[in-house]
Amino acid sequence: MALRVRDLTLGYDRHPAVHHLDLDLANGSLTAIVGPNGAGKSTFLKGVMGELPPLEGRIERGAARVAYLPQLSEVDRSFPLSVQAFVAMGLWHRTGAFGGLSRADLARVGEALAAVGLTGFERRPISALSGGQVQRVMFARLLLQDADLILLDEPFTALDAKTAADLLAVVQRWHGEGRTVLAVLHDIEAVRRHFPETLLLAREKVAHGPTDTVLTAENLFRARQMSEAFDDDANVCVRPAEQPAKQGAA
């Protein structure tokens, strides 16, 4: 199991953004997370990365190495770094904090850049890249991270069709290599075409399973109905954990 989540509640200031979620992701699965804005999709990925401590429940990562592409990356694009130096950060698991980059490592960087269609961009400063090129660079770095579980938060938003298609091919390559990929997406049609599994999230899990059984009109309607209400005077949630979850904990 690449990821096992039990009765997980994540939130901000005690208000839940992800509520009592149970989820099992099989090794090598390719799963899309779909849901309306405010459904807790990004929050869930943050929780998996340990950026946000659970208010309740547990997350067990079966994968040894996890790579993460956040929606709002905090990359300082004015920072004087070359594309090569930036992408080479993906080799952290090989170099650690102190190790140098070998000739073979630089060759790996070149291959990763080639895989995202940026051959010859090595010496370009990252400040000179367009939005789409930045996303290609981020994918090149993800490629080098050689992770077992890859989390992508809206990776194709604001990209032109060509760039989105190229980067989707990278995702499919990961799937072919047996890596587990979990991607937040808004393009339902693309999910139907390219993602075998889907998690439909609306703060709580609406459905999870094969994409065609999850993305039904009824489920999508339910997801939209789930309120985004944020009540300052909401009562403390006393819902008992579901029975199977308790057995899992025992």
């Binding site: 990365m49 950026e51 993460y68 990356s73 905090e74 770094l81 952290w92 904090a97 991270q145």
Partner: peptide, 14 residues
């Protein structure tokens, strides 16, 4: 350098 350029990535790998 990583802490300056992409702190979130640094936190995700180390």
């Amino acid at each position: 350098v990583l802490e300056c350029a992409d702190p979130r990535f640094l936190r995700s790998v180390s």
